[in-house]
Design a protein around this nucleic acid. Structure first.
Length: 254
DNA sequence: AAGGTCTACAACCGCGAGAGG
DNA sequence: TCCTCTCGCGGTTGTAGACCT
C-alpha cells in the first residue's frame, strides 16, 4: 500500500527558515488562523511542506511562546513531570505555559539529563544509577499494560502482570515527593512507567479552588507541585494535581 | 590563528491515531 | 470494515556558534 508523501518533496525548501518565509507564514496564520497545514504552504505562497510550516509555527513563531532560559522552577517541574510521564514531551509541555514540547525535549537532553547523571541519578528511571542498574538486572521488562488499553503489544504480558515490590515503593516515593498522597497506587501504576488512567481528587478546600479560579495561586501551587507546603501565595493545594481541579484525569488534556 | 571538539537547538523523519468517505 | 488523508508526537539529525588545544 504505502503512504503518500506529505508533500511534493521535489518542490519544497528544506533547512533553516528565512525571515521572509517566517513573515509569510505569520501573516497567513494571522489572516486565516491555524489548521489545514497541508494546504497552507500553497495558500501562503511558501515552498515548504505543511508539516514544516506547522512545526515552525508551533515551535518558533507562535506569539504566546516564552523565549529564554528555563527557571529553576521550570527545571524542577520538568524533572517531576518526567518522572511521572516519561518522554511524553507534549504532556509535559502542556503544564509549562509558553514552552513547546520540542524545546523541553531539547532542554532535557542537553541540560537536565546531564545534571541528573552528574548527581548519580538515572534520567530514565529517576533512581540512583546503582539502584537502577540493580533493578534493571532483576526485572528488565518495562510494561505499559493496564489490561484495557492494549499498549503492550508483542511483549510477553505474563511478565508484566504482577507489580514488583521495588518499583511499587519507588512509585510511593515519587508520589510522596510530589505530595500527592490522594493518588492511589493500584489505580495509578502497575509498573515504573506510565499508566494513563490517572485519577485525581477534588481540591482540598473551596478557598484554594476559588484562588485557583481567580488566578491567585502561584505557579507551583496552581500546578499542584510541592503542595502540602505553605506558600507565600497562601495556597496549600493538597488536592490539585497538575492544576486540575476535579474528576478523572484525561491524560490528553493534561 | 587554525583546526578540532562540544553544545544547543532548529528542523526533519517516520510512525501512529483519529476522522471521514 | 477498509482505505486514505491529515495531524501530532517522539526520536534523530544537521549545523552554527562556542570553546578548547
Amino acid at each position: 500500500m504505502g503512504r503518500s508523501p506529505c508533500c511534493e518533496k521535489a518542490h519544497t525548501n528544506k533547512g533553516a527558515w528565512t525571515k521572509e518565509e517566517d513573515e509569510r507564514l505569520v501573516a497567513h496564520i494571522r489572516a486565516h488562523g491555524e489548521g489545514c497545514w497541508r494546504s497552507l504552504p500553497k495558500a501562503a505562497g511558501l515552498l515548504r511542506c505543511g508539516k514544516s510550516c506547522r512545526l515552525r509555527w508551533i515551535n518558533y513563531l507562535r506569539p504566546d511562546l516564552k523565549r529564554g532560559n528555563f527557571t529553576d522552577e521550570e527545571d524542577d517541574l520538568i524533572v517531576n513531570l518526567h518522572s511521572l510521564f516519561g518522554n511524553k514531551w507534549s504532556l509535559i509541555a502542556g503544564r509549562l505555559p509558553g514552552r513547546t514540547d520540542n524545546e523541553i525535549k531539547n532542554y532535557w537532553n542537553t541540560h537536565i539529563r546531564r545534571k541528573l547523571l552528574s548527581r548519580g541519578i538515572d534520567p530514565a528511571t529517576h533512581r540512583p544509577i546503582s539502584a537502577a542498574a540493580a533493578a534493571a538486572a532483576a526485572a528488565t521488562t518495562v510494561c505499559f499494560d493496564n489490561n484495557k488499553n492494549d499498549v503492550v503489544k508483542d511483549q510477553d504480558k505474563s511478565s508484566c502482570s504482577s507489580s514488583d515490590e521495588s518499583s511499587s515503593s519507588w512509585q510511593q516515593q515519587q508520589l510522596r515527593q510530589l505530595q500527592m498522597p490522594q493518588l492511589q497506587l493500584p489505580q495509578l501504576f502497575r509498573v515504573p512507567d506510565l499508566n494513563l488512567e490517572l485519577r485525581i481528587s477534588p481540591p482540598e478546600t473551596a478557598a484554594d479552588d476559588r484562588k485557583m479560579e481567580a488566578g491567585l495561586l502561584c505557579f507551583r501551587c496552581s500546578l499542584g507541585v510541592d503542595s502540602n507546603r505553605e506558600c507565600e501565595c497562601g495556597g496549600i493545594s493538597k488536592g490539585g494535581f497538575l492544576g486540575l481541579a476535579t474528576g478523572v484525569l484525561d491524560y490528553r488534556s493534561v
